[in-house]
Amino acid sequence: MSPTQEFPSEQEIRAAVDAALAAIGQASSSAELKQVRIDHVGDNAPLSIANRGIRDLPKEQKAAAGKLIGGSKGQVQKALAERQQQIAAEELEQALRSETVDVTTWQDRLPRGARHPLSTLGDRISDFFVGMGWEIAEGPELEAEWFNFDALNFDEDHPARQMQDTFYVAPEGSGQVLRTHTSPVQARTLLERGVPLYIACPGRVFRTDELDATHAPVFTQVEGLAIDKGLTMAHLEGTLNEFSRAVFGGEPITRLRPSYFPFTEPSAEIDFRCFSCDARAGIDHDADPACRVCGGTGWIEMGGCGMVNPAVLRACGVDPEEYQGFAFGLGIERILMLRSAVPDMHDIVEGDIRFSQHFGTEI
């Protein structure tokens, strides 16, 4: 109490107690009762202020004032405790009613998940190639350098061999890597089965990329390899056109751009005409400059392809004068992002079941 403030009378103390008891009786929840406690027995409550004011009273008045304030606070505290027990019992009963479980009702105790869309799309891609009469081939993810690089015509100083691109397996000089593409499966299968050969090779690959919106250190590819007599780039383009129809629907427009890969010669990049903006109407229609799918170019880069380099055929025991072939590689994550408008690679790799559940029905 301030020096100018008088000590409250007995009637004022009783009025404060009555107000506290009324507020306690009206409180209907633990939160409301907590606020009542603060208002009526907290540091700034009238009874607490009066209790601190006892020290300023004359000595002969302190005992009576202390007895009055102590009894009043005790009465309020007792009422608070009783009301707290009542409210706790009421809230417990309400919770039990609202959370009641009928134990006689059948319950599916196994949480329902969903196949990851990469798995679903991978199966769909495999079905397409099987439908064409191709085989599905698989190989190890921990691969020998010879199959991953040498057999595919990579020079010893090729940038792809460097540590910034490839995961090398300890100890140093082990000659083993985490495969950077599924092309080693092609070399293995050529050596095991010989020619003619028509295979698709889906699987995980590993590169030392940072995880961002469009890249991941672990991703999936599907590579195709066809080796036979008389195969040309026309067969390659026809295969890719049929693939694009099966995966994206409609009548996609594709193009091949000259490029370079050690294991194909000639080599090309395969582009699809953007199916998100006006460019999808044909090459004589301009793309939307603001299109996020094609970046305003009208074309979407899908992967690399080309005729198998004769050096690769010879490394696998095939006579390039008698047999020719084509190969291509496509990223399944990229196909999923374009096909289903997935904006960020994080959504694909983080394993949130809510993402996969959107793909529960495939038509």
Rank of each mutant, 00 (worst) to 15 (best):
T180S: 15
D150E: 15
A137F: 06
T120S: 09
R339K: 15
R193E: 04
A95S: 13
A234E: 10
F359L: 08
G296C: 12
E90H: 07
H40T: 10
D102T: 02
P266T: 03
D102Q: 02
L236F: 05
A226P: 00
G25C: 03
R292K: 13
P202L: 01
T264I: 08
F326D: 06
M132S: 07
Q77V: 12
Y260D: 04
S174R: 03
L178K: 00
F272Y: 14
V342D: 04
G295S: 13
G238W: 13
E93L: 11
G282M: 11
Q61K: 15
V36F: 10
G329V: 09
E321F: 07
E333Y: 07
F219L: 08
T182C: 01
R204E: 05
L330M: 14
R124D: 04
L211G: 00
I363A: 14
F7Y: 15
V318K: 12
L197H: 02
G131Q: 04
S29K: 09
E301D: 10
Y323G: 01
E141I: 04
Q357A: 12
F355A: 06
P3V: 13
Q221W: 02
G203Y: 00
V312C: 08
V205E: 00
P3S: 14
E60S: 12
Y260H: 12
H181G: 07
N51H: 09
Q61D: 15
C277T: 13
C291F: 05
F206D: 04
I227A: 02
L197K: 03
E99N: 14
A226V: 15
C274P: 03
K59R: 07
V318G: 06
T104D: 11
D228F: 06
F243H: 01
G173R: 07
S30N: 14
I227D: 01
N309S: 10
R314I: 08
L338R: 09
D209P: 03
I38Q: 12
T297G: 08
V247P: 00
F261R: 01
A144H: 14
E143S: 03
F154W: 03
T214Q: 08
V218N: 05
G122H: 00
P289W: 07
A216F: 01
I136E: 04
G42S: 09
L236C: 06
Q11S: 14
M302A: 13
F206E: 08
I227T: 02
F272L: 15
G133L: 09
D155W: 00
I69P: 00
E269K: 11
D228S: 10
P111M: 08
